[in-house]
Computed example of a mutant assay.
Amino acid sequence: MVREQYTTTTEGTHIERPENQSVYKIGIYGWRKRCLYLFVLLLLIILLVNLALTIWILKVMWFSPTGMGHLHVTEDGLHLEGESEFLFPLYAKEIHSRVDSSLLLQSAQNVTVNARNPEGEVTGRLKVGPKMVEVQSQQFQINSKDSKPLFTLDEKAVVVGTDKLRVTGPEGALFEHSVETPLIKPDPIQDLRLESPTRSLSMDAPKGVHIQAVAGKIKALSQMDIVLHSSDGTLVLDAETMCLPRLAQGTRGPASSLRGLYEICACPDGKLYLSVAGVGTTCHENSHICL
């Protein structure tokens, strides 16, 4: 650009112009101009590449106004379709499946679900491994669909809330300590067997123990003694026929008593034995069995 100088004159005045006029150039010329154009071109190329990459990422990740891919954002939370893989921990308040499908949690090693308190400490843990399911909590409870507790477990007791506890194992149920229950009965086509292979079997109740076999027989076997004891009451054996086939039998009495009749005698220690019946009692004649 050329800067021109103007001088105000009046009429009749003649002013001579200077012969040498000063010219100033304003702008970027030469190699600076070429570097500036090259830098602008480079920025334009980077802008176009970023725009192309952004469009490609949006297309590959299936971004949409409602979410990304199979993940959709709804009013109730996040809706995920198909199978998904999480490389890091997943934090959620509630996880549920669709109405017409089930929820599947699958892992190559194990599946662990943790519950934490506001301080971040683990208060409950469910770990499903390849060989064992481990639950770490103060109380473990299983409820029915109507919120009725079916199974409750804590450090002090185990409560089964069902109407019937069924054990289908071939060897029955094994209890190392005492069992408290109002009723024990088998299936209609099975026999009920209470057994203690190495120790004694004791049944106690404050108001009595009732044992009933409606369509069968009751059989009690013991290698040592069977004791029927009533602390305040009477022991009643009420049956149409009562047989004691292995009672000790005393020697025969007088010849006049050979009628095939016997009387049951008791020793001071409670032992029973048979004595041939006579006109009077013959127990004293065979009391040597009590020795």
Rank of each mutant, 00 (worst) to 15 (best):
G169P: 03
N286H: 14
G278E: 00
A239Y: 02
D154I: 10
V227F: 12
L44S: 10
L126M: 08
T251K: 11
G260Q: 07
A215F: 07
E85I: 14
L291A: 06
S101A: 10
W56G: 07
E240Y: 04
Y6L: 12
I15H: 07
P206I: 12
A213N: 02
A173R: 11
T123R: 12
S144A: 00
G124T: 04
V111D: 07
T74V: 12
I226A: 13
W56H: 09
I211F: 03
G253N: 06
P245R: 09
T123I: 09
K33N: 15
L174K: 03
R34Q: 10
W31V: 12
S256P: 09
G250T: 02
A255S: 11
A220C: 07
T7Q: 08
E285P: 05
C35F: 11
Y37S: 08
Q212I: 02
Q223T: 11
D163S: 15
C267M: 00
G169V: 05
Q136D: 14
G280V: 06
L192P: 05
A157M: 14
D154M: 06
A277E: 05
S107R: 02
T282G: 02
L71H: 01
L244F: 06
P254M: 08
R125H: 03
Q21V: 10
M242P: 01
N143R: 06
E240P: 06
V227H: 14
A205W: 08
L41P: 09
E171C: 10
L165E: 03
K217L: 08
L237N: 04
H288D: 13
W31P: 12
S64Q: 05
Q138S: 14
A248G: 13
L38P: 02
Y6E: 12
S231Q: 11
H288I: 13
G233L: 06
E4F: 13
L291R: 13
K131N: 13
I45Y: 01
L150V: 09
V236D: 03
P182D: 13
P268K: 11
K207S: 13
S107D: 10
H96W: 05
N286A: 15
L105I: 13
G270E: 00
H288V: 14
P18F: 03
S196V: 04
